[in-house]
Nucleic acid binder design. Structure first.
Length: 222
DNA sequence: GCGACAG
DNA sequence: ATCTTGTCGC
């Protein structure tokens, strides 16, 4: 496992925490999410990427990736389980001036290398990590709807943000080529009547549709 | 040593 | 993440 830790540290060194382009220049956002299932004793992952215009969030394109997974779920090592698949799905829809929003941590990670960081570094494109539960860092609980509190290790590595009065906070951190402030700003702009960013929700639905789709094709063809 | 611990 | 129905609350 030391080898994997070293790889994460190496990737973390390539991270840039400055905006590759200004907020006003963002033309698209792409949400990525995954669904898992087993076929016999083997496990598979379906990654879905949904590209939307920004800031109006109109559906533009989508891409999926389906593959077998061999790595187990181990906190802080998520990138080794679903990273390659996520990258492949995003690659299919990526355009200029696009920010990637991933369902996983960015630099709010023990070695500053969460899933969003992996995707952002692999594609050399701005990326943001969004999670429903905290993984790493110190922060205060945002109490009011729309309120955010910084997440820290030594420096600011992200924000805990409360989407609505009844919602628990979501955790936002830069993946690559974006600042914590801009990452939060983009995420807030993609949240409407729901807790999570619209692109992530759409990707979630699509991953599950593809999964069910695949499973039903299985028992009618072998 | 013990607890925490994305999806 | 996945397995699963109804149910309480804003």
């Amino acid at each position: 496992m030391n080898k994997l830790v070293e790889l994460q540290k190496k990737i973390a060194e390539e991270v840039v925490l400055e905006d590759a382009f200004n907020y006003e220049e963002i033309k698209y956002v792409v949400g990525v999410d995954q669904a898992f299932f087993k076929k016999g004793d083997k496990e598979f992952v379906v990654s879905a990427a949904v590209l939307m215009s920004f800031p109006d969030l109109r559906f533009i394109d989508s891409g999926v990736d389906l593959r077998k997974v061999d790595f187990p779920y181990i906190p802080t090592f998520l990138m080794f389980r679903e990273g390659d698949s996520a990258v492949e799905a995003v690659k299919k829809v990526l355009r200029e001036k696009t920010v990637i929003i991933v369902d996983g941590s960015g630099i709010a990670h023990p070695r500053k290398c969460g899933l969003a960081t992996f995707v952002g570094v692999a594609l050399r494109n701005p990326s943001i990590g969004v999670t429903k539960r905290p993984l790493y860092g110190k922060f205060e609980e945002p109490k009011r709807s729309g309120e955010s509190k910084g997440i820290f290790n030594d420096e600011l590595i992200g924000y805990a943000y409360k989407p609505c009065a009844r919602c628990n906070p979501i955790y936002v951190s830069p993946g690559n080529m974006i600042s914590p402030e801009t990452a939060l700003r983009v995420v807030v702009a993609t949240i409407r009547n729901y807790k999570l960013p619209i692109p992530i929700r759409e990707a979630h639905k699509m991953a599950n549709r593809e999964k069910l789709n695949y499973l039903s094709d299985l028992d009618s063809s072998g």
